[in-house]
Design a protein around this nucleic acid. Structure first.
Length: 585
RNA sequence: GGCGGGGUAGCUCAGUGGUAGAGCAGGGGAAUCAUAAUCCCUUGGUCGGGGGUUCAAAUCCCUCCCCCGCUACCA
């Protein structure tokens, strides 16, 4: 039996960055999981926040002519705004500059001291003042004058400063044992390999304090030192659930079920963090999952290329739930993925508009027109009906298993399979034909479809909360019966209940170039051209051979009948919304 | 260099010994409830190269080529 509690975290985001797709993606994945778990009856605590200490922040504030605190107040707001725009359902938003966090950091520090894993030493290395960063010996190149230079070209000098160290070197064996006992601690598997091989190479002690800047949590008992950023940052995960007050009711959420991270920070979460915690006598988290990165139209994303993807822009262009769906659907979760406009439009039109959207629309508008707007009561179920309903009702279990292992893409895969099967089902039983021959049977088919839609609507809520709600509204599912507990037979809709007139959930994405011709009535479709040799050409082929007419040709309201095309075999008949146009062929 | 992962249809990938698969794209057809949305059928691959084990290899072994990740103190 799984614990009812579920504690899930995002990394805290470094406020020096502007929120970009990477931030949005990590939190989105957590949001989908958190929402799923809540709907599935779990007691979820979903945490995100901002990391606000460190030298870079101190410097950025100074450059902006501000004190660090008001500066971080401002930039951390960007991340709260993003959470709102993306419809994230985090239960808490932690900031490392909060007093609760500083208290927590001091407490864990003292525990580490007590366990003997902290000692005072000297941190030394090649430091580039210009970059404000340390470099490893092997990264450096010797300049013409024999002076060493950083990869950035900045001159470096050998610097030594007093520093407290964490005795990480003593934790190698215990960590390896921990990984062995918890084979799913790091996922995906490939990251786990990296982590264990890293640890097997042998660990060096970790510098956990600095004296070169002031913006951070002071080391208890030696205020010349600031706690090293990773110790500070990682500690947020226990701060938020009350640490060091273990009598805080929220402490029951610890250990976290899942730390979701980008693949770049696996090591800190999978090696340092459990070592810190074990040393402090605190249970390590249950899982660290490292997801991949996005490229943009096949290109690596970088500031210098200027191809950073702004999540707010995506929402504006494609819609919120469409964006959420794409990001979670397009890529096996954990892998890198490519964002492309074409792929996005493909998903929106093929799966959202034509798949689930049209399925709902064709079913509900049929009921609206032919059943007086009331859900028909089902008659005797046939085998095929039972199979269809079974597929919908079996979805929860499949999705639950996938979500439990962060296989978000599999969950959506399974969900979309049912969409496809339902479209096959409606065609197989053709209620539009039954209307003339067997109205009772027609009602049963429609009822089955509505029950399937009820499951699809409920189960899409974690990924697309607004669209899911919209669909359930149209099915007249009461707001208190939208959790997974009401799936299956429990929340079964009764025949005869009135269903509101349907409205499209997902519009097709129409390219701007097409939209501007007749914005109000734009439609895209296929048209055939009959060539003199009697061969019918598809629209795309016709377009290729008719230059400069794309926009006009794409706009038509009625599919021309073969008869029409045949009569005017040397012309294309285009029935435009505004006017009748003939084009020379 | 070391460790790990991968190279399968035009594209993205599934497939760990038994007649090569899915989605998308391409081609043909049906239907007309629906956001011209859907459904059915279908073209397409010497499974990176070479060698080996086996009755049988995408799958196991050897070797070569290519791609990617990790190889510690910026979050």
């Amino acid at each position: 039996m799984t614990d009812a509690r579920y504690y899930i975290t995002t990394p805290i985001y470094y406020v020096n960055d502007k929120p970009h797709i990477g931030h949005a993606y990590t939190t989105l994945a957590c949001d989908a999981i958190a929402r799923f778990m809540r709907l599935d009856g779990r007691d979820v605590y979903f945490l995100t926040g901002t990391d606000e200490h460190g030298q870079k922040v101190e410097k950025s504030a100074r450059d902006a002519g501000m004190e660090p605190q008001p500066f971080t107040d401002r930039v951390s707001q960007n991340f709260r705004d993003l959470a709102k725009a993306m419809n994230f359902s985090n239960d808490d938003f932690i900031r490392t500059t909060e007093e609760r966090h500083k208290r927590s950091c001091r407490a864990i520090w003292q525990k580490l001291v007590k366990s003997g894993d902290i000692y005072l030493g000297t941190y030394s290395g090649w430091y580039a003042v210009r970059d404000e960063a340390f470099y490893g010996e092997e990264e450096l190149t010797a300049g013409p004058d024999g002076k060493k230079t950083a990869p950035s070209g900045a001159p470096v000098e050998w610097v030594e400063e007093p520093s407290y160290f964490f005795r990480l070197s003593a934790w190698g064996e215990r960590l390896l044992k921990f990984y062995e006992d918890n084979p799913l601690f790091v996922l995906p598997q490939s990251r786990r390999n990296e982590v264990t091989s890293f640890v097997r190479q042998g660990l060096r002690d970790l510098s956990v304090s600095r004296t070169s800047f002031r913006w951070g949590v002071k080391v208890p008992g030696d205020e010349a030192h600031i706690m090293y950023v990773w110790l500070d940052a990682l500690t947020n995960y226990i701060t938020a659930v009350g640490y060091p007050d273990e009598s805080n009711p929220k402490w029951a959420y610890w250990p976290a079920d899942l730390h979701m991270v980008g693949k770049d920070i696996v090591r800190f979460h999978a090696i340092y963090w459990p070592a810190f915690l074990m040393s402090a006598g605190i249970a390590p988290p249950k899982r660290v999952f490292a997801h991949g990165w996005w490229t943009n139209e096949g290109q690596k994303i970088s500031k210098s290329l200027g191809n950073i993807i702004d999540p707010l822009k995506l929402i504006e262009t494609y819609g919120l739930d469409q964006t959420r769906y794409f990001l979670l659907r397009e890529v096996p979760f954990g892998n890198d993925g490519d964002f492309s406009h074409k792929a996005m439009v493909g998903r929106i039109n093929a799966e959202l508009a034509n798949g689930i959207g049209n399925l709902a629309q064709r079913t509900l508008s049929f009921i609206n027109k032919n059943c007086g707007g009331k859900l028909p009561a089902p008659g005797q179920f046939m085998n095929d009906d039972i199979t269809m309903i079974g597929q919908a009702r079996g979805l929860l279990e499949l999705m639950r298993a996938s979500i439990e292992n962060q296989e978000l893409h599999r969950a959506i895969d399974a969900w979309f399979d049912v969409v496809v099967w339902a479209n096959q089902y409606i065609d197989r039983h053709a209620p539009w034909a039954l209307r003339k021959t067997d109205v009772k049977r027609m009602g049963t088919v429609l009822y089955v479809l509505v029950d399937v839609l009820r499951h699809l609507g409920a189960l899409m809520q974690p990924f697309m909360p607004e669209a899911g709600a919209k669909l359930l509204d149209q099915l007249a599912v009461p707001s208190d019966e939208r959790s997974f507990a009401s799936l299956g037979g429990k929340g079964e809709l009764r025949g005869g209940i009135p269903l509101p007139a349907p409205v499209g959930i997902f519009p097709r994405f129409i390219e701007d170039a097409q939209r501007k011709v007749h914005p109000a009535h734009a439609m895209v479709g296929r048209i055939y051209q009959r060539r003199s040799d009697g061969v019918y050409l598809r629209l795309e082929k016709v377009l290729r051979e008719l230059p400069d007419t794309d926009d006009a040709i794409l706009m038509f309201r009625k599919w021309p009948t073969k008869e029409e095309v045949r009569l005017k075999h040397s012309h294309l008949i285009i029935d435009l919304v505004e006017s009748q146009v003939e084009l020379e062929w």
